[in-house]
Write a protein that binds this DNA or RNA. Sequence first.
DNA 1: GCCGTTTTCGGCCCGACTGTTTTCAGTCG
Length: 586
Amino acid sequence: MYNHFMNNREVASTFRLIADLLEIKGENLYKILAYRRAAESLTNLSRDVQEVWQAGELEQIPGIGKAISEKIDELLRTGRLGFLERLTEEVPISLADLLRISDVGPKKAALFWHQAGITNLTELEAAARAGKLHNLPGVGEKSEARILAGIEALSRRSTRTPLGAALPFARQVLAWLRALPSIQSADLAGSLRRMRATIGDIDLVASSHDPGLIMKAFTEHGWVRHVSAAGETKSSVEFHNGLRAQLWVYTPERYGTGLIHTTGSKEHALRLREMAQKRGLSLSDRSILNPDGSEQLFDSEAGVYAVFGMEWVPPELREDRGEIQAALEGRLPHLVTQADLTADLHTHSTWSDGQLTIREMAEAARQRGLKVIAITDHSASLGVAGGLSPDELVAQRREIQAAQAYLGESIQILQGAEVEILSNGSLDYRDEDLAKLDIVIASLHSGLRQPRQQVTERLVRAMRNPHVDVIGHPSGRLIPDREGADLDMEVVLDTAAQTGVALEINAHPARLDLDDIYARRSAEMGIPISINTDAHHSSEFDNIEYGLGTARRAWLEPQHLINTWPADRLTAWLSSREGQPPVERA
DNA sequence: GCCGTTTTCGGCCCGACTGTTTTCAGTCG
């Protein structure tokens, strides 16, 4: 290989693999933790690790010191890592797969390896079926059965569930919990409450003076297929629909610490515990323990944060991405809310692949309190979506005018288009057709697997077209099936900053694209951001919730989003972009 | 392996639940 390019995700997963293998080997726990923390830090990094490396600034990344920065350097220079190669000679690399099985951790994996010669999933499954595991020390028949069930569960479900596939069901469960007689309060927790794009399982937390009663009702409910743990205060189940859930129950006076613990993230909670420790306190999910052994109890989260002199931190920010420091300094962002949004600038009608007419879509948007809606049907070349020819755009304009006349001034309907970016970076409409539109969104739908440089240049060329106002779902990812295009985001963001084109946060739960990391970076660079539902039906306006979650995770405030601008400012911005000459590369 | 408003060395978060155990280790969040 002459090209040693590795992106942030690939470098991060290399360090996760090292951590897994070291753990099976039985290395010092804090060394392992250090590799994991470095991996998390790289995952949260909004700059390209390649660029940070070239700038010689690797050690400025939190959790990355001399040893790990040297390893990154070797990886990026040579595409290899001697340390990992020596490690895999000692510990078979396929052992790391065993850790994906629930109830199998590093100690069990090492046991299977040393005492039964097992080095991969296939061998483990065969040994379990043959009943060869339960003779090993510390492993009984129950463990053997659990392991077998765990292996089967691995093939049954993908590792993470899209937020949009989990949230509606989780809310049903929550509503049922809240209706229980002995319950005081109940909330979503975990990555659902933090609005991560994908979740591992559904975390629920409740307060009650009778936790046992809640637990019994929860684990015995008809939608539960299997109970994998059931204790006094915590239980774990799998539902018939394949989703897993955990429920914690606290007494009301301990709900504050409980909610913080169960909401996470793990890294955020860890930081808080470190802070407690520095003050001689000990923070757990039950209380704060004073040095003299007495307890401080908290019925709300705000009280816990106040102990450390911090503002209450919105759940979407709890990722250890600087929110602790910001909360200490009283400079947390004033996050955008649904009430701030006045425009949806990316929607479809029956003119292409939408299911409702322009008037129906506009009425539904008005009903949701929007002041502006842009109808942005597909351009001609996206044949599967019934894209419009330039002639049809003229006819569509007449229908928009009719709908506008019918609806009066309560909502403004813009004529736009979602224009294909063709494989060479040119657009699917001629400039004179684009010039007639109120708003132009340019999107990639095909050729997403082009090489990095090619697909990046394609997007850059589209951004340099002066008629383009917004880049729709920039990466083209589809959760959980398809990775986005291999874009050079440094170049994409620089071009957006130069041309003033807006980047979209597409709110569809399968997209959430831009993601939270790049949306935050875009805002820091002064790039306008547009948050849109891409609705093909009025019911999909509700998807804005997912996009808002992403925007809030990106620390966005109302002024970062063009959708919060008053209609006159928005249309002035759009028309100011018309006919601007392309900005040439400096 | 990382890190520093007690430290450049010696620390590094906390507790519930399960299974295989005679008092605890492993896993998980």
